[in-house]
Amino acid sequence: MKVPVWLILTAAAALAAGPLPIKDLPPGKVMMVIQPHHDDHTTDYGMGGLIAQFTDAGYESHFVRASNDEKDGAHGYGHNDLINERECKAAIAILGMSELYSLSWRNDYMDPVPLQELRAQLIFLIRKHRPDVVLTHDPWGHYDRNPDHRKVARAMGDAYWLAGLENVHPEHFALGVRPHRVPYLFYKARVDYGKGHEPNVAVELNESQVRRKMRAYSTHRNVYASPAMARSVREQLAQEGLELPDLRGLTDEAAAVEMEEWHMDWISRKRGRENGVRYAEVYYFVDEFDHLPGLKEYLRQHTVQR
């Protein structure tokens, strides 16, 4: 089959994409972050800045952690779960989030979890809090080898709109909740895992949001900021007669925290540079009527304020 020229042109245009449009916060009052793991406010080293931006704007916000994170850390399953939950609470508090839900499914064993059971939990939480915005994992990301990421993303891919239908889990309504469809989504996935997730917007961050994102990240001491990593880097530098002046006098743990925070600062600047601002994060944004490609333009043009 001959490939039409316009197809080649379209593909070339996609590859040569320039800066992304800078996205302002969508309207609303409630935001939820629904993720597999305690530390997934850092997915692809982003989200923390946008979360801080939402809470700065006065959004009520909730973090849902689907797994128990027992495999993450070196303290044994039970202790890892407790430490990671504690550090998660501390980290999301830095970002201004008010509440943590731990669904506590077994970490890295979420593949055999019945999708509908997880989905029902998410549908209930969506109906309870009625978020205007959800930040979650992209169900269409490619090559994600983490079973929990795949599972939560797939469950969310159903939950955000099924929560709006009266015929889905009508038993919930006995608890006083009502149907609610999530109108706006920000998806994130590991962009280093292939071309499945291509962001369509950038979000500009201010200095304070980047600082909080850095601190929230390094709060996960059980999994990041390992003193052994800092010691190894410093030893390698010392062998060449070098040192990092910023780390002088710091313990290995403090040096590790500092280095992790540099990484968050670097990635925020890099995304900013790519998109024409100082600091940024990038997302795949789904707008309120994107699921109606034949109507969204008409709705944009003909909707009026009451």
């Binding site: 309207p27 109606l292 490609p293 034949g294 109507l295 333009e297 008409y298 709705l299 003909h302 909707t303 009026v304 304020q305 009451r306």
Partner: peptide, 28 residues
């Protein structure tokens, strides 16, 4: 719910729904 309205759907009757469907299909 968000303080807006679409004049076409002020009254959701057969004619309005048919119009919405036609707009959707023509655009698709």
């Amino acid at each position: 719910d968000t303080g807006r309205r679409l004049p076409l759907l002020d009254t959701v009757d057969d004619a309005a729904v048919a119009k919405l469907v036609e707009i959707n299909l023509r655009k698709l």
